[in-house]
Write a protein that binds this DNA or RNA. Sequence first.
DNA 1: GCGAGATTGTGAACGAGTTCACAAGTTGCG
DNA 2: CGCAACTTGTGAACTCGTTCACAATCTCGC
Lengths: 224, 224
Amino acid sequence: MTETRVPIPTLERLAIYLRVLLDAHEAGIQTLSSQEMEQHSGISAAQFRKDLSYFGEFGKPGVGYSVSGLIHCIERILRLDEEQPILLVGAGNIGSALVGYPNFRAHRLRIAAVFDNNFVKIGRPFGDLMIEDIARIKEVNAEIGARLGIIAVPAHAAQEVADLLVEAGVTGILNFAPTILRVPEHVHVRNVSFLQELAVLSYHAVEEALCVNGQATRGGKDGV
Amino acid sequence: MTETRVPIPTLERLAIYLRVLLDAHEAGIQTLSSQEMEQHSGISAAQFRKDLSYFGEFGKPGVGYSVSGLIHCIERILRLDEEQPILLVGAGNIGSALVGYPNFRAHRLRIAAVFDNNFVKIGRPFGDLMIEDIARIKEVNAEIGARLGIIAVPAHAAQEVADLLVEAGVTGILNFAPTILRVPEHVHVRNVSFLQELAVLSYHAVEEALCVNGQATRGGKDGV
DNA sequence: GCGAGATTGTGAACGAGTTCACAAGTTGCG
DNA sequence: CGCAACTTGTGAACTCGTTCACAATCTCGC
Ligand SMILES: NC(=O)c1ccc[n+]([C@@H]2O[C@H](COP(=O)([O-])OP(=O)(O)OC[C@H]3O[C@@H](n4cnc5c(N)ncnc54)[C@H](O)[C@@H]3O)[C@@H](O)[C@H]2O)c1
Ligand SMILES: NC(=O)c1ccc[n+]([C@@H]2O[C@H](COP(=O)([O-])OP(=O)(O)OC[C@H]3O[C@@H](n4cnc5c(N)ncnc54)[C@H](O)[C@@H]3O)[C@@H](O)[C@H]2O)c1
């Protein structure tokens, strides 16, 4: 419970714990021990307790954790105790999948507006929303007050969009585009890259490591 | 260059390096120093060199790395030097986004077949492919020989699908469903969870940590 | 050919995050 | 009540990955 900075892996796991707890709640379970959490989450009991210890004491020795109590606490920690509006930029394939995704609700995350720069798309309905002109993003967010934004535009437009989001007041960006974003100190970015994930899997899919070197510069057609 | 196990973060970064290198290649750049890689990737020069050192020596002191040479080496390391077929299960929102995604090509990843269990969808075209019956997955993969699979079905069906994929010979699974999958030792799973990513961002979006405890069991309506 | 300048590859130091292990707290039963 | 069974919270040890720093290597120009 010291005032140390919380490790990011801990925050990632909190979201997993929350999911397990919501499932347990659904199933009518009232109490959960760290041992049981390990069963359901695949994360070790010690890790679970240590993670929570960054934020306070939530369990009862000899008993475990109140499911609903802990749900509330984790929601409070992750700022999911009240609705978080989100700005989505890019009404394409990824954007489509996101607007219709029902599970956001359970976490009190809500896509509050969608933006695009394609005049053909602007004004059209998109899920429950209407696609807005990216040029109006600052104006629109003055009302919404979202702190989170999602970038689902092609890579070449991502930096530009990031700048607009930041200007509109966003401090957390989920980026689907395969680019490194440059943002101010106070803005957090998390990248989602399916290609990267698949590349890691691809490596493991074939067991042996046999890139037997081969000295970069050798190999024929490409001079240095 | 010792035979130690390669850290997973290193593999993740390799995919990033590859992207930067491909961009550089596109731009006609022939040589890149670790310093320049740091500029473009946001990953420190020392980290870059250390990462590569797990696999061999690819650079020339005083010069840097041959862009095309290193591309080939990283591709070889990540098994992206020849086409990797992938099985996609779930012809829904996420599935749609994936089949049409052009960037897979550049990494020689190819979705080779799509499966679903919805009789209305089976037989319909989906991107360049036709949706196949999930029941035929083993049979189909006997021909394709894919080692990678993507799960894009609802959470309640994910485990079942994972079992089928494993049975069909897949050893690496990219899982979009919010569930912990139980798989045999030799199968690798990577989970993609937008909710988790957003939860982490949500935490950071509001700076202070003020979950002032509140002792789990207290709080009224929920007994232990 | 040789010295100046650049850059790599890597052992060693460091640090962040995980696991261990146990004291302290809680419950229930005899 | 008091003891046995159980579970938490957390300092300490440990593990794994990152950063540092420098010897070794290579290029180029004179
Ligand atoms: N589709 C996938 O499976 C997938 C997978 C991984 C990553 N991605 C990445 O996600 C991003 C989006 O992918 P997608 O498939 O949805 O692309 P898409 O082409 O379907 O949609 C992109 C949308 O962004 C809009 N747009 C372009 N420039 C814009 C700008 N400056 N401001 C506002 N809107 C703009 C376009 O009009 C379009 O509607 C891309 O960067 C892509 O690389 C996609
Ligand atoms: N849509 C999103 O933005 C989003 C975001 C994050 C995670 N996810 C997760 O990704 C998964 C897929 O999401 P989606 O939006 O594409 O869902 P979806 O409902 O659009 O598509 C799911 C598809 O899976 C098929 N399916 C169901 N059971 C099956 C089975 N046993 N075998 C084969 N196919 C089966 C369905 O027929 C359907 O076509 C879900 O687990 C969801 O939680 C989605």
